[in-house]
Design a binder for these strands. Structure first.
Lengths: 218, 218
DNA sequence: AGACTGAGTGAGAAGCTATCACGGTGCGCT
DNA sequence: AGCGCACCGTGATAGCTTCTCACTCAGTCT
């Protein structure tokens, strides 16, 4: 008893393990059938349990999905940080490729974060914190770039509405570039992942590279 | 019997009317609860019918949703055409505002077209035809603009992969601009409609205008 | 006028989420 | 070491869903 390693009791460790196994099964199911068809019963069957047992671990279906969304956000933020940390200093191109790789690795995971929202849904506090984290990575990378062309009227608007950037020292032009980076790459990725380029024979990767070049040239 | 106005029998007219009423109720429901929560039973209740009655009009839930998607595509194409036809000659700015107005008018309808796809889904033939229609409007408007800056390497790629543009005479630069128009405005709209700009205090309309300006300047 | 087509119904199967009361097991504390 | 409790898992159950089927009734067409 000299030093209670009281961090986790056996019960807590078991509980955490079952929770992650449930989430793993859920991810498998989502990848093949989409989040809207996620079935707690099916997960329980796969795990050799009875349906109601899962309610010991998640309050309800929405609670499980919320946990998955939270993990997806966390995973996205980690992927973005990892991508920028690879080189020396913030690197918008590396960030872009990290984002794209993460999206392509599991399209339904991307859609859980950026896809169709259910009308009533409000993001919980912790995911908005992660959103800020990701936005900061983008702002860092944009601030490290040489300043772009002439200031637009939207730049002026952003100078007055930069509360969302926290106290980040990036100039309005960098704020604008970060937002464009986000919206433009999202537009491309979301259409690609949703299969809207299916009939067209151009290479989405080439267009992604072209958009990124344009963003960097700014 | 001199001239059978055989276009529609009474039965067919009644059937068509009930079908459209079902779809109207479905739209109301989708607007408030999202498409994933669409309930045939609830629609039947609202119409004072028993649940199974709806199966006379739509083979199943997916068939109803497919019909709604088809109508949404049709509505989008009409809105785009109307927007461009207002002025004299193709007008990319008018097209952009038509698109935005259509999206804001019913976000869930926008998401039915461009939102999270269910993994197995393949768009039926007729919606891909409408997609081509919309793309043609974009290409017309882009081809009417003064040619943009220096050709990028993606322009060269598009010169070799322009099958999706049919036999549209637009040069590769216009093809590129049409694709950028689509992906960039979609990125912006989809994030705005999904509420991802919620905490941020800038005006999405201003950013939309800025993106459009950048697109027009090329 | 008679026959047929098709709309709507109730019953019912199979699936889902979610709640509840109940048994057993293993953890922690004395 | 052993007692007690907290917690896990189960079966039963309610209420919802989609969807099928046999049946009835009404309107349409010949």
């Amino acid at each position: 008893m000299a030093e209670t390693r009281a961090t986790t009791t056996p019960r807590e460790r078991y509980r955490a393990q079952v929770r992650t196994e449930i989430k793993e099964r859920a991810w498998e199911q989502i990848a093949t059938t989409g989040a809207s068809a996620l079935s707690l019963n099916a997960i329980a069957r796969q795990m050799g349990m009875s349906g109601p047992a899962l309610y010991r671990y998640f309050a309800n279906r929405d609670d499980l999905i919320a946990a998955l969304i939270r993990d997806a956000y966390r995973s996205l933020a980690d992927a973005c940080r990892l991508a920028t940390e690879a080189g020396s200093g913030p690197d918008l191109a590396a960030l872009a490729h990290g984002l794209r790789d993460w999206a392509l690795a599991d399209p339904q995971r991307y859609f859980l974060v950026y896809g169709t929202p259910v009308p009533g849904y409000h993001a919980p506090e912790d995911t908005t914190a992660i959103t800020h984290e990701i936005m900061t990575l983008m702002l860092d990378a944009c601030a490290a770039l040489p300043p772009s062309g002439p200031a637009s009227s939207f730049d002026a608007h952003l100078a007055d509405h930069r509360q969302w950037a926290g106290d980040h020292p990036a100039p309005p032009g960098a704020l604008h570039r970060a937002l464009s980076f986000w919206t433009r790459l999202h537009g491309l990725l979301s259409l690609e992942l949703a299969g809207h380029f299916a009939g067209m024979e151009f290479d989405p990767a080439e267009m992604f590279a072209a958009e990124l070049d344009a963003l960097l040239a700014g």
